[in-house]
C-alpha cells in the first residue's frame, strides 16, 4: 500500500441529489444518489468501487470526470478544486480525465469511422499538426489495444462488442490521461471476451501509467484489477481496504454478504448461501440510522439512530460500522 502516497484525486463530502417526482400532486422529492462520500486515490493506484445496481457507483464516476455537477462537496485533482471549473479550464482538464463507458454499443458514434473517432481529440487539443502525425498516433493507440491498421477505416457496426470496447479504450487513452474512470468496462461483454479486456487493461496500465477508478458490481473483476477496494451501499461508502485484506478479512456485514455471494466454480466447495432477510430500503425514504441496519445480522438499537462514520480500524482499512 505504501508504494502510492501522492494523492491525485481527493474527494471530500461529495453529495449528489436527484429530483424525483413522486406523483402529479406530490411535491418533488430528492434522493441522495451519492451521500457524503470522501476518499483519496493516489497517483498510480488502481481503485475498485463495488456495490449493487443503483448504489451510486456510476454517478460517483461521472462526477469525478465532470460529466455531472456535484450538488455539494469538493473534488481536488492534482491539488486543484475541479468541481467548480468551467469553460476553457474545464476543457483543458478533459485531457487528463477520461472515462471508458459500460456499453460499447452506445459509446461509439455509429456515423464515424474508427479513425475519425480517434482523430477528433488530437484535433481538439491540437496534439498533432500534420495528418500523417495524426495517423501515426491513432494507429499506435489502435495497435496498443490489439487492433490492426486496417480497422482504422471501418465503422463501429463492423466490430464485435469486445473490439468496440477496445476502440473505446483506445479513445480514452489517446490523450494520455492521468486519471481514468472505468465504468463497468466488461459487464456488457461475453465472459470469454471479458477476460481479454481485463488482461488488456492490466497491460495498458503499465504501458500508459494512468491511475484509475474501476467501477463494477463484479467482485472478481475488481479483485483482478485493483489495489484497493471501496464498497458502496446506497450512496455511502461502507468499507475501504486493500484488495488482499478485504478478501481475506471483510469487516462490514454488507461486504461479508457480497463476498459470500461470489459464485464458486468448484462444486465440492459449494457452501450454502446465507440468505438475509429484507430488501434494500428505498432511497426516497432511507432508514434514520445505518442504511444497512434493516438487513443486518448484527443490528443493535444504536444502529437505528445514526449512520456510523467511516473509521480506520487497521492501517488502510476503513469501515463504517459500530459493531466492528
Amino acid at each position: 500500500m505504501n508504494q502510492y502516497n501522492n494523492p491525485i484525486i481527493e474527494v471530500k463530502n461529495l453529495l449528489k441529489e436527484f429530483d424525483v417526482i413522486k406523483g402529479f400532486w406530490a411535491k418533488k422529492a430528492k434522493i441522495k444518489a451519492v451521500n457524503d462520500v470522501s476518499f483519496t486515490i493516489n497517483e498510480g493506484e488502481a481503485v475498485g468501487l463495488v456495490g449493487e445496481s443503483g448504489c451510486g457507483k456510476t454517478t460517483t464516476g461521472r462526477i469525478l470526470v465532470r460529466l455531472m455537477e456535484p450538488t455539494a462537496g469538493k473534488i481536488i485533482f492534482a491539488g486543484k478544486d475541479i468541481s467548480i471549473l468551467k469553460g476553457n479550464k474545464l476543457k483543458q482538464l478533459r485531457r487528463e480525465l477520461q472515462m471508458v463507458f459500460q456499453d460499447p454499443f452506445s459509446s461509439l458514434n455509429p456515423r464515424m469511422t474508427v479513425y475519425d473517432i480517434l482523430k477528433r481529440p488530437l484535433e481538439i487539443f491540437k496534439i498533432a499538426k500534420t495528418s500523417e502525425e495524426k495517423k501515426q498516433i491513432a494507429l499506435k493507440a489502435l495497435q496498443d489495444v490489439g487492433l490492426k491498421s486496417e480497422h482504422l477505416t471501418r465503422y463501429p457496426h463492423e466490430f464485435s462488442g469486445g473490439q468496440r470496447q477496445r476502440i473505446a479504450i483506445a479513445r480514452a487513452l489517446i490523450l494520455k490521461p492521468r486519471f481514468v474512470v472505468l465504468d463497468e468496462p466488461t459487464s456488457a461483454l461475453d465472459v470469454s471476451v471479458q477476460a481479454q479486456i481485463l488482461n488488456l487493461l492490466r497491460n495498458l496500465r503499465k504501458e500508459y501509467s494512468f491511475t484509475y477508478l474501476l467501477i463494477s458490481h463484479d467482485l472478481s473483476v475488481v479483485r483482478f484489477l485493483s489495489d484497493k477496494i471501496m464498497v458502496m451501499y446506497m450512496g455511502k461508502l461502507v468499507e475501504v481496504a486493500p484488495t488482499s485484506e478485504l478478501f481475506k478479512e471483510p469487516l462490514h456485514p454488507y461486504t461479508k454478504l457480497l463476498m459470500s455471494s461470489i459464485p464458486n466454480p468448484n462444486p465440492r466447495n459449494r457452501k450454502k448461501l446465507k440468505l438475509i432477510e429484507g430488501d434494500i430500503p428505498s432511497l426516497l425514504n432511507p432508514p434514520p440510522g445505518c442504511f444497512f441496519a434493516p438487513r443486518c445480522p448484527l443490528r443493535t438499537p444504536e444502529c437505528d439512530k445514526t449512520f456510523p462514520k467511516l473509521r480506520e480500524v487497521k492501517k488502510g482499512h476503513l469501515v463504517a460500522c459500530f459493531k466492528v
Binding site: 476543457k91 459509446s107 455509429p110 456515423r111 477528433r120
Partner: peptide
C-alpha cells in the same frame, strides 16, 4: 442520451460540435 455524446464531451467537444457532428448526423 447515448454514451457517445458523453464520450464526445470528455474529448473536449463543445455543444455546437456535439450537436452538429455527433447528434444530427444520427
Amino acid at each position: 442520451n447515448n454514451e457517445y455524446v458523453d464520450a464526445a464531451r470528455l474529448m473536449g467537444e463543445n455543444d455546437i460540435s456535439i450537436l452538429f457532428r455527433y447528434i444530427l448526423p444520427n
